[in-house]
Every structure is written in structure tokens, then in C-alpha cells.
Nucleic acid binder design. Structure first.
Length: 210
DNA sequence: AACAGGATCCTCT
DNA sequence: GAGGATCCTGTTA
């Protein structure tokens, strides 16, 4: 684990597809709860039909066009908050969706927010992850690269995934109706907190959507 | 001003 | 495996 400091934003300013695997094993802290990230998805901005930014700059997607290292939060299906780390250079709206993780600190608080579920399910899925961390739309735009803030991010110094072999797997992104075949989701192979894959019923048949 | 459509989750079967 | 909850967002009128 590195105190990446000022160079954290530089790393996050690389393309989403490069940043995504670097987030695996990283620690995301929101208030008193800290998560070890185990599953993420890359979104490549305006060029990516699966991205919210595909149709250009809007009030909602504005944060993604800004500098890397900020949170992009949105509401899914009316009740679930989902969170991304903005990546890439300023002006390019790429981001990485945080899909799952393991609670490594503040577990009691996370359990209170997600009563009745097993520990491995506390943050297993993008909506559940935000619930366990207490994240909502008020976190949209917050900077992950400042020490002492409400939110912070610590990348692994090296050895992504931790403990020996990297063991990172790649597969299609979850629930997309467009660009459903791009293998832009990555996860720590074999980790119990990785969410289960579901293809969108709206998606074109396998192999025809790029 | 109104509408259609989700980067999901939970509860059944 | 299927269906419903629920409300913001972007688009259209």
C-alpha cells in the first residue's frame, strides 16, 4: 500500500482500461468504512456507447469531464447509488465503476447499513457497495486525492491484488444494453466478494454489439 | 410538462 | 429465472 500523494492523480489520469486493474486490491475509504476493491469496470467516455458520457456533456456527466481522481456518483433505478473514479486527462470523460469490495475497516457500521446480509455480501455489487460505504449523490464530485477528506483512495505500491500472483480476470461489463460484449470488467480471480454476471435482456445477441 | 429508460437489488419460484 | 420497486436524467413537445 502506498501513500501515493500527488502522484495518485497522475496514475488515475491514465486511460480507464489501464487504471481499472490498478484499483483491484486498492483501499477506498469513505468516512469510517474502508473497502478493499475486488471488482471494477472501465468506461471510455464519449467514444464508449456504454458510458453515460456517450452523448456528450450534461449536468450529470460534468464531473467525468473534469480532472481524474474525483468521484462520479449517479442514481440507478431510482434507489441505488453507484460510484465511479474519474480517470483520464481533463476533458476526457472516462471513469471506472466500483462494482464490489471487501470491508476491511468499519465493519460494524457497514453491517448496520446492510442488516441481515453475510459479510461477503456487504459490498458485493455497485449499489450495495455504496450502501455499505454510506455513499449517495452528495458524494458526487468529491476528490479522492486529498489527505484528510471525507473520501480517500490508496493504491497498492506494486503487486496488484496482493499476496503473490496478480490473478486478475477480465470479462464483459454487467447489465449494459449497448457495447455489452467489451471485456472491460476486471476482478480478483476467486474472490468471494465479486458480484455475479448478468447480461442485460436489452442487449443485442452475443457477439454483435462490438 | 410529460415521457421512456436505466452501469440494480430483492423477493419470490 | 422472472418481475417489480422507484425516481433521476435526458429528450421531446
Amino acid at each position: 500500500m502506498t501513500g501515493a500523494g500527488g502522484n495518485l492523480r497522475a496514475v488515475l489520469s491514465r486511460p480507464a482500461l489501464e487504471v481499472a486493474p490498478l484499483l483491484l486490491g486498492a483501499h477506498l475509504r469513505v468516512g469510517e468504512v474502508t473497502l478493499r476493491l475486488t471488482e471494477v469496470e472501465a468506461y471510455a467516455g464519449e467514444q464508449d456507447p456504454g458510458s453515460h458520457a456517450h452523448r456528450g456533456r450534461t449536468p450529470r456527466t460534468e464531473v467525468m469531464f473534469g480532472p481524474a481522481g474525483h468521484l462520479y456518483c449517479y442514481l440507478s433505478y431510482g434507489m441505488h447509488t453507484c460510484a465511479n473514479v474519474v480517470t483520464g486527462p481533463e476533458g476526457e470523460a472516462s471513469a471506472v465503476l466500483l462494482r464490489a469490495g471487501e470491508v476491511v475497516e468499519g465493519r460494524a457500521l457497514a453491517r448496520r447499513r446492510r442488516p441481515g446480509v453475510r459479510d461477503r455480501d456487504l459490498a458485493r455489487g455497485p449499489g450495495r457497495l455504496c450502501r455499505a460505504l454510506g455513499m449517495d449523490l452528495t458524494h458526487d464530485g468529491l476528490d479522492l486525492c486529498e489527505d484528510g477528506g471525507e473520501v480517500s483512495l490508496s493504491l497498492l505500491a506494486d503487486d496488484p491484488g496482493g499476496g503473490g500472483e496478480p490473478r486478475i480476470s477480465w470479462g464483459p461489463r454487467v447489465g449494459l444494453s449497448r457495447a455489452a460484449d467489451r471485456a472491460w470488467r476486471c476482478w480478483l480471480d476467486g474472490d468471494a466478494t465479486v458480484s455475479t454476471y448478468r447480461r442485460s435482456p436489452q442487449a443485442t445477441p452475443i457477439g454483435t454489439s462490438g
